[in-house]
Write a protein that binds this DNA or RNA. Structure first.
Lengths: 184, 184
DNA sequence: AAAGAATGAGACATCCACGTCTCATCTGAC
DNA sequence: GTCAGATGAGACGTGGATGTCTCATTCTTT
């Protein structure tokens, strides 16, 4: 059943994004199954990690698709991306913390593709005059992903309400921490 | 010799901030010593991790001191903090990635103190009318730390020039990604 | 109800990193 | 030159997580 795999992956993300070194016992318990069944679904720890990473990147790509980041003005596109990405923020947190994943050429290539898409969005926004040109598109892209991961961690730990997460992310990233002089 | 400990800690940060599960062999090699000597300096892996964490928090506290974050207007204080913190960004990246550290009550308490100081800075800035009040001080504090850690990773991986890091961090965090309408 | 599959619990064996040890080598002080 | 201390290299035992196995139990299907 695909549902089994998915629910296990979901549980694995919840545990691994917080503690990447969690034992398989813990992951199995979080998924509500036994360690034996976990091994029946995934050949081993490495395969599980790989699968979680691949799932994360697929969801990331899907969020880029649904947000239609190549359409319309860049600011709206980014806001759509935030909305599409926030539900999977935990997955992004996992991707950000698991540097080991990028030893895998396949995973790495998948990541490069998505990262390039986000960079293109910022570049487009800079050409539109929407985004600041003093900051490189690469840095904007990286910082954006850092903040998405930060949202994932904060929500998981209860430091940020899920309801506030999209707003907090978009407003801080787009407008910064400073109070706008023209909005008193 | 204190120099030995410090240089080993420095090397450990460099390795552990990228791969928290790195073997002691690797850390020893990065420090230019043998695994035996590493064990002579630190009783074991746990002690080493703890020490790195404690060092990171001490440096973080020192940066808060040198920046005098309680003095003057909040924006200038934050800019001073960025300048003081950026040299230790890798250390912050390590702290951000090593959630396991916060199981230790002593480390956790030390972290809470520093985090409260940063939160107080943002609260003060909000009361001064400098920082936006739509975003909670806790979120501003957390997001700021996420970006500092992100700078640490990016610099270590060569994706961000150290020379640009303080500027990129301060500008993005304070002003956001949007181009200011009053600065054409 | 009965047969089959799926699962959980637990018992192993294996592997790998860690921690400890010894010994040879190197360095520096006298 | 000699000796004491420090270091490196390597061997060795240990612990813990992983991977594989068996068997009893439960759930599903007919």
């Amino acid at each position: 059943m695909a549902t089994d795999r998915d629910s296990v992956l979901e549980a694995a993300v919840g545990v691994l994004s917080r503690r990447p070194t969690a034992h398989l016992d813990e992951i199995a318990r979080a998924a509500g199954i036994s360690r034996a069944t976990l091994h029946r679904i995934f050949p081993g720890r490495e395969a599980l990690i790989r699968e979680v990473g691949a799932t994360g990147l697929r969801r990331f790509a899907a969020a880029l698709d649904t947000a239609q980041i190549d359409t319309g003005d860049a600011q709206s596109a980014l806001r759509r991306l935030v909305d599409a990405l926030v539900p999977d923020a935990a997955l992004c947190a996992f991707l950000a913390g698991e540097n080991q994943l990028y030893d895998d050429p396949e995973i790495n290539e998948l990541w490069e593709i998505q990262d390039a898409r986000v960079r293109a969005l910022f570049l487009r926004g800079q050409q539109q005059g929407v985004f600041r040109i003093e900051l490189s598109a690469a840095w904007l892209s990286e910082a954006f992903f850092d903040l998405v991961a930060g949202v994932g961690w904060a929500v998981q730990d209860g430091r940020l309400a899920p309801r506030d997460s999209a707003y907090s992310l978009a407003e801080l990233f787009l407008g910064g921490a400073l109070r706008s002089p023209d909005q008193p």
